[in-house]
Amino acid sequence: MALDTDARSLESELEDSGHARRAQAGGAAARLGAWVKQPGPLLGGPLMLFLALGFVGPLLLVAAFSLIPPKTFDLSGGWTTQNYVDIVTESYWISFAWSFGLAAVTVVCLLAVCYPLAYAMTKVFGRAASLLTLLLVIPLFVSENIRLFGWVLSLVKGGVLPGAADLWLGIDISGLLYTVPAIVLGLVYVYLPFMLFPMVLGLSMVPDRLREAAIDLGASRWQLFREVELPLAMPGILIGCLLTFILALGSLAESKILGGSVVVMIADDIESAFTFAQNWPKGAALSVLLMVLAGGLIFAVLSRLDLDKILGRG
């Protein structure tokens, strides 16, 4: 009986949405009428205008700046690709490689850390989920550099961890700070919620009934994961990977605060081009390169996802 009513309400939903969709595919006059009646563009308009002024505009300007002669500050001085040539011939590829490498390592670590956590939050400790969510969200609201500074105090020679290790275990672990693993630690630490929450959304899209059905059909734990959970939770996991990869790619504070000067990441280069070197065009060109790489990735992933489906469940 339940199946019957499900199917029936689905049918009528189809009927309704069918109408709504058809309402959009109409003649020119009807389309004009629908345009005026549709509140969507009107409501989203202010936001789009704001982002045009505060996001698209600045990025176009950066793109323009990347095409003027090095160390000039004026758009009227003619166009050149000199900055890009400089970037390719100089050793900037090292910073790009570090950024991509560290971002990739961060994503892998986050996958391993967050999957059990997201699984526990959605499927095992459902009742405590809102408290857990609160506890995991709070750090997000504390400035990133304060939290990283907390790691400095924890890892630095004589800090919390080396101090405690020395005091209670009698071992010396004072060389932790200003190393590549420390940077990865910082990246994993700062971007954890950005992997976790999309993953939680994704996993909550896996119906319990389906998992039970799979177990009933004789699936092992591993098969359940491979054949049911992973494919269904994929959209959320993909968003999490994308978010954390992009954010880690453009990160600045982690390598500066926790890495000292062991590694220069690309955002470091961009910042110093704009500030110390006073070479805006080069900074702009580096930004454009980063944007193109990140933007391509974002579009490749986002175009495969149905946001309504992912968020509608939340």
């Binding site: 058809r22 959009q24 595919a25 003649g27 629908a34």
Partner: peptide
């Protein structure tokens, strides 16, 4: 009642 070309 028409929705565009569709006669409902």
């Amino acid at each position: 009642k028409l929705f565009g070309d569709f006669v409902a």
